[in-house]
Design a protein around this nucleic acid. Structure first.
Ligand SMILES: [Mn+2]
Ligand SMILES: [Mn+2]
Ligand SMILES: [Mn+2]
Ligand SMILES: [Mn+2]
Lengths: 213, 213
DNA sequence: AATAATTATAAGGTACACCTTATAATTAAC
DNA sequence: GTTAATTATAAGGTGTACCTTATAATTATT
């Protein structure tokens, strides 16, 4: 777990990028942090190993979906703290940014959301930058635990073994797919999808998360 | 600068001690943190080198005045954040302690005092522990900048070079001393102390902080 | 006084995130 | 197409705060 420093990098990459998919050159990170190119490169390799960034040699880094999530969560915390500092504690806005840079690492997601509520769910920081929305907390259920007739949408597969993914893929059980539970017994479920009906072992269904309607 | 970890140790020592001056055995710190005895011992040596604790072999550690100041400041921040979490964000009090353990390291003294004001200067944390008072913020002035007739008390010398300290010492310009400015010109000031009058180069006076009456 | 328990110290190691210096590879500019 | 600039990589190093294993010193217990 690299946590704090990693977050800082991901946040910087998010801030520095112009367009998603256009890589941020390491030279920019070097300048942003005031670190040596070698240090930045080293760190980028670590971030890349964790799949938080994609490293494009001689071009720079882009955020992976996971990396972007981390960056957005950080920016959300940062900007909420800025609002708290200026609105609640009456800290001058020119000092709020730096102070929020420390607080942003010191709170859990839950505290962050409570803070947001307290502040009245502000849409932007004192400097006008938008506050990223909290991740829509979908109520996920396990596909294996649903009664006959339940309908919803596949959200994700919680284990990424090749065999499982292949089994699900061939049956059309993919993130995004709409479904209705047609039947269920001790060792398999029958699930109706858009264009066909699939049989799936319960064991596999246990790895599938869905959002119910 | 050891800062965060050092603070954590000093805070723990403060919490664990029964009476000031009765040393806290390293074994207690070992247990408190869940670190190995060797690690604790190592850290204690560092704290001792900084004169934040006094180490009494086979007995334990006591806080020096400086160390205690750091510990009290930490506890103040900790308990103020606990109040904020429970009172303002409605975090359950059983979660507040741990969460405050992170926030306590993420704020400056100034933000702490603003937080205290916002909270209405509470006297105790949600768990009933007293909140140490803020350091009485003496309004310090520079001895070099005072008009004739100004009176007050020397509070401290802001640069600790041997030559300067010797110069001040021989003239009786020491922390605690009461004074009146008798005269002042382009390159020196004349300062009246309890039992004598001293002449001091302005350059030296610039390093002396005073509290005015 | 001898033994047991506690405490201290020595020696060597790990992970993290930074550093410098030097060389190689690639890309950009002339 | 050669040169210059940028970017990457290799090699070795730092400080902080943790670790284990092993041995020495002190204190406590019987
Ligand atoms: Mn930060
Ligand atoms: Mn802002
Ligand atoms: Mn803490
Ligand atoms: Mn408390």
């Amino acid at each position: 777990m690299l946590q704090e420093h990693a977050e800082e990098y991901l946040g910087a990459i998010y801030r520095l990028r112009t367009t998603p998919d256009i890589p941020v050159p390491l030279a920019q990170l070097t300048e942003y942090f005031g670190y040596s190119p070698v240090s930045v490169h080293e760190m980028v390799k670590k971030l890349s190993a964790q799949e938080w960034v994609a490293y494009h040699p001689y071009q720079g880094v882009t955020l992976t979906p996971t990396g972007q999530k981390v960056a957005l969560a950080l920016l959300r915390r940062h900007r909420l703290w800025e609002r708290f500092l200026t609105d609640t504690l009456h800290v001058p806005w020119e000092e709020a940014h730096e102070l929020a840079g420390a607080l942003e690492h010191a709170v859990t997601e839950e505290v962050t959301e409570r803070l947001a509520t307290f502040l009245g769910d502000p849409a932007s920081c004192p400097h006008g930058a938008p506050i990223p929305p909290s991740m829509p907390s979908i109520e996920e259920r396990c596909l294996a635990d649903l009664p006959t007739g339940a309908r919803g949408r596949i959200t994700r597969v919680s284990q990424e073994s090749a065999a499982l993914l292949h089994e699900l893929g061939t049956r059309g059980i993919l993130p995004g797919a709409l479904f209705v539970i047609a039947a269920q017994n001790h060792d398999e479920i029958v699930i109706e999808l858009a264009k066909h009906t699939a049989h799936l072992p319960l064991k596999s269904a246990q790895m599938v998360r869905v959002e119910l309607f």
